[in-house]
Amino acid sequence: MQDVRKALYVGSRSDGTLVQRPMSPHLQIYRRRLSMILSISNRITGVIATGGAALGIFWLNAAAKGEKSYTTASKVARNPLSRLVLFGWIVSVVYHTVGGIRHLIWDSGHRFDKEEVNKDGEVAVRVTVGVSVVLTALLCLVGRRRAKKRG
């Protein structure tokens, strides 16, 4: 701990000698409410979304560079591992968007009550799952149709 709170951790024994005080447990013991999990997940999915966006830029770069680079990029994108990554990225972006809308609602001054927060949290999870499933299904469908056309 390099902050000024470090000084509060020095106490003294009954005989006056100094002793280092322990820190009370936090993450280790605090109840994991849905709101807390959703909040940290918003941060995690934001980082994943950024990573995916970076990969997207590389794909765009490959398309702009030339035919050979684009063919390589397309081959990599068709790899089952890449599809898994794409799926994970889609779910992250959907979740982060839903969570983001929740934050925007709070920032505009609404839905702050404890009951409302908890209810909205459950709705957010359901919407995320629903939209992710629909999007992925559509993408698979379109992808399969295009692959058939390619022959």
Binding site: E67, Y70, S74, L138, G143
Partner: peptide, 11 residues
């Protein structure tokens, strides 16, 4: 959806 699996010409 339009760009997935498209050729470079399409892109």
């Amino acid at each position: 959806f339009r760009l997935g699996g498209a050729s470079r010409a399409d892109v």
